[in-house]
Design a binder for these strands. Structure first.
Lengths: 257, 257
DNA sequence: CGTCGGGTTGATTTACCTCAAGCAACGTGG
DNA sequence: CCACGTTGCTTGAGGTAAATCAACCCGACG
C-alpha cells in the first residue's frame, strides 16, 4: 500500500514494482523492449481475433481495448489496455489471437520480436515470474469484470469500473492523484465494456453525478465522494493492490541457475 | 482437430497433449504431481478468496467451480473446474486467492507443494511453457464467458455453455463422445455461472429441449441437433481447439540450457 | 455553414427477475 | 414400510431494470 508510486517514468516498470524490486539490469532489459516506440492512430488494430501473432507490443501511451465481436455487430470489451500493459504476450505460447485489440486513442507503442523477449528472459530469468504475475493479475481483473456483468446492477457496474480504472492508473503512477483522472473513451465503449446500452450508461453516469459521487467533464472523471462511490459499487479495494511477495520471487518460474 | 483424444488415462495429460507432445519423463514428472490423490466431499473449499495459498491442486475426478461472492449473497461462477485442471497455480506468484474454489461434487484431488512443482520444473523446463499455455487457455475461456454475460441473450448463453462444456470434456478424453455427457450441476449453479435466475435457466433449457436441440435427463445432457445448437449459440468452435504449436515449444519460456 | 460524432432526454417495449406454489426424487429416522 | 424434511425442478403471474426507438442538442471540424 505504501509503495504504489515510485516515480518511474515507465508505467510498466512502476506497475511491476508493486510486485518485485527490479535490479538495474532488469530494468534496463525491460527498457530495451520499450525503446523503439512508434505511433498508431486511434481505431487501428494491434491484433485481430483469429489472426496469427507476429510480435508483441507494449503500450506506452494512450488507451486501447481488448474486445470480441459477434457476427451481428454486438461487441464486448473485455478489458482496457492502459499504458504499461503488454499486448499479445500470449503469442509466445499460442498461434493466433482469441480477441482483437484496438486503439481507443492515438497511441504510442513499442513493438518487439518474440525472439528479443526470449533473449532478455534468457539473461534475466526472474522476468518470467514478473510476466506470469502480470498475466495472473490480468486474469484477476477479468474475473472482477465477470462478476460485474453477471451479478451487479448497472449502477454498481459503472461505479465499479470508474474505481477500477482510477486504481489501475494510480498503481502505474499515471496522474490519478487528486481523485481525478483522464478517461478518453466514449460512452459507447463503456457500454460495450459493461454489457449495457449507451443510453443506460449515460443515465447511470448522470445519476452518480447528481448524487454527488463523481463529476465528469469531457474525457475527465473526478471522484468527489470516494467512500460513497465505493459503497455504490461495493468495491473491494484489495483486488488491485498487491503487496510485494518477497518469497515468491525466488520460486518456481525462476530458471535453474 | 484430429488429435483431440489420445486415450490417456489422465485428463491433464490428454489436455496438454493438444498442445505439446510430452516426453516419457515429462509425463512421468506430471504423474508424480498427480499420484497421492485423496477425496473431498461436495461443497468443500479448495481455496478461499482472500486466504493465502498453501499448496496447489490437480482435480482428478469430479467437478468444482471458481466463484466470487458479493457480501449480500449474490454469487458469480467464473468457471468450472473439470478433471485435469490445476487449481491454485497462481499461488506461485501471488500471495492470496482472488476467488474461491468449491467442489460441486465429491472430488478426487492431488495436493502438491509448490516446492515439488519447482523441482519438477527445474528438471523439465518445457513444462513451464505447458503451464503458461494452460493459463492462457483458461483466460480464453474467461473471455468467452465474459462475451456471453455481456452480449448474449439468455438462450444463447445456455446453448453456448453446453457446447463449451461438451468441448472441454471431449478434449480431455472424458466420455463426451456420443454428443452426450455428464453434467453434475444444479440449475442454481448454472444460473450463477450465466448471470441469470434459476427460473430463467429452467425456461431456456426446456425451450432448447422443446426445440429439439438438446435433451436433459438428470445430470446428463445429450446434444440432439449439434448444428442447430451451434446456431442458437453462435458458437465459434475454434476457440477451444488448439493445434499443437510446433515452434512455440522451443521458445521464450524455456529455460536456458 | 452544414455535417458528423457524441451526448442527453423522453416514451415505449421487453427480457428477465421475483414471488409463490406445487411436485418429484431422495434420504432419514421412526 | 411409511411419514418427513430437504433439495432441486417446474410453472404461473406480476413487476422492473434495462433495451430500443426516436428526437434533439452541441461542439468540433472541414
Amino acid at each position: 500500500m505504501t509503495h504504489l508510486y515510485h516515480g518511474w517514468r515507465s508505467p510498466l516498470i512502476a506497475h511491476l514494482h508493486c510486485f518485485i524490486d527490479l535490479t538495474e539490469s532488469e530494468t534496463a532489459a525491460l527498457a530495451s523492449l520499450e525503446t523503439p516506440s512508434h505511433l498508431l492512430g486511434h481505431g487501428r488494430l494491434l491484433q485481430e481475433e483469429g489472426q496469427p501473432f507476429t510480435a508483441g507490443y507494449i503500450l506506452n501511451d494512450g488507451w486501447a481495448m481488448r474486445h470480441k465481436d459477434l457476427s451481428d455487430g454486438r461487441r464486448q470489451v473485455l478489458d482496457f489496455v492502459l499504458p504499461g500493459d503488454f499486448v499479445g504476450l500470449e503469442g509466445t505460447v499460442v498461434r493466433s489471437a482469441d480477441h482483437t485489440v484496438t486503439a481507443l486513442t492515438d497511441v504510442r507503442i513499442s513493438r518487439f520480436a518474440f525472439d528479443h523477449l526470449e533473449h532478455i528472459i534468457h539473461d534475466h530469468p526472474r522476468l518470467v515470474t514478473a510476466m506470469v504475475w502480470l498475466a495472473v493479475r490480468q486474469r484477476t481483473v477479468l474475473a472482477e469484470h465477470l462478476l460485474s456483468l453477471g451479478r451487479r446492477s448497472a449502477r454498481e457496474r459503472v461505479a465499479h469500473v470508474l474505481l477500477e480504472i482510477w486504481r489501475r492508473l494510480y498503481v502505474r503512477g499515471l496522474g490519478a492523484d487528486h481523485h481525478c483522472f483522464h478517461m478518453p473513451i466514449t460512452q459507447t465503449v463503456l457500454a460495450d465494456a459493461l454489457g449495457l446500452s449507451t443510453v443506460h450508461i449515460n443515465r447511470c453516469l448522470s445519476q452518480l453525478a447528481k448524487a454527488g459521487l463523481v463529476e465528469k467533464r469531457r474525457d475527465t472523471v473526478s471522484i468527489i465522494d470516494l467512500p460513497g462511490l465505493k459503497r455504490a459499487a461495493d468495491f473491494e479495494s484489495g483486488y488491485l493492490s498487491e503487496v510485494p511477495v518477497a518469497a515468491g520471487m525466488s520460486r518456481t518460474y525462476e530458471s535453474p541457475r
